[in-house]
């Protein structure tokens, strides 16, 4: 039986200690890269093939002039209607029994289609292996009933994982408790993500967070319209030709003009 899990990220409890960022690298054996301080606590600057989860730091000036420092743990949202799975040519990306989006690395051919398709800009390309990489919600840990490394590392309880329904319920209860602009992000689009945020601020306040993420229209046209259309059109043409052949017949050159030796004279 399918046991859908949801990782709940309560940003109102996140202290940006980045334990999750390190725990992720440790469990998944992802190397560090040399970085520069670019005037922010945030580093690396973005998700990378070797950084599957990243705490984003953002200074947000509220209407009353007070500054709010927003932290957001970025990473794969594990969509139900996952654009990456939709576009993956080889089936390297797939849904696990937990609803999360995992990846058979051996199947990945580095086509980068998922990078383009993902509404959250999550998959990242590793030129050395010619493969993409992203969070798989610690599938190997989930399989043995262990929480993902990030959840395990979180000291404040900003991260938790559990049955989808229970987590969504919890999320709404917490958002209500927080009041104000607090809201739940994740359950309402792409048929529900398996990572759900409790955002203390409105979604449009957060940088790099799409307010209304969806599988891009182009991807839908490609995969849901043109992909079947390709077969349909070719099939229709073949059928039409056959029909033409048996009803109208071929356009054959006239016999009398194909006079052998006629040109000899």
């Amino acid at each position: 039986m399918k046991k859908e899990l949801v990782k709940l990220i309560d940003l109102s409890r996140c202290t940006a200690c980045r334990g999750c960022q390190v725990a992720c690298k440790q469990w998944n054996e992802l190397p560090a890269k040399r970085t520069k301080n670019f005037g922010s606590y945030q580093n690396p600057p973005d998700l990378q093939w070797n950084t599957w989860t990243l705490i984003r730091f953002q200074e947000h000036e509220k209407k009353n002039g007070k500054v709010n420092w927003l932290f957001r743990k970025d990473g794969c949202m594990h969509c139900t209607d996952a654009a990456c799975i939709k576009v993956c040519p080889t089936g390297a990306l797939y849904h696990t029994e937990f609803g999360s989006v995992s990846m058979h690395a051996d199947k990945c051919i580095g086509c980068k289609a998922c990078i383009t398709a993902c509404p959250f800009s999550v998959p990242k390309y590793n030129a050395d292996t010619n493969k993409i990489a992203k969070c798989d919600l610690c599938y190997t840990r989930l399989q043995v009933n262990q929480p993902p490394a990030c959840v395990l590392s979180c000291p404040t309880g900003a991260l938790q994982i559990g049955a989808k329904d229970a987590m969504i319920k919890k999320a709404y209860a917490r958002a209500e408790e927080l009041g104000g602009d607090a809201n739940v992000y994740g359950d309402k689009f792409v048929d529900g993500t398996h990572v759900v945020y409790i955002l203390p601020e409105r979604a449009d306040v957060y940088e790099h967070l799409p307010v209304d993420p969806k599988v891009p229209l182009e991807i839908i046209i490609w995969k849901d319209v043109l992909k079947p259309a390709g077969l349909l059109a070719a099939g229709a043409v073949v059928a039409g030709c056959f029909l033409h052949y048996i009803t109208h017949g071929p356009k054959t050159p006239d016999d009398e003009t194909t006079c052998e030796g006629g040109n000899k004279s």
Binding site: T116, I221, W222, L226, G230, V238, G240, C241, P250
Partner: peptide
Amino acid sequence: YVLHALGFVIIFAFFFVHLYLVTIGAP
């Protein structure tokens, strides 16, 4: 991606017409 797929659909379909005509459609 859309264009690439669209191009495929059209070229692929036309290809069969072409194939038919140069073979049994117009011997």
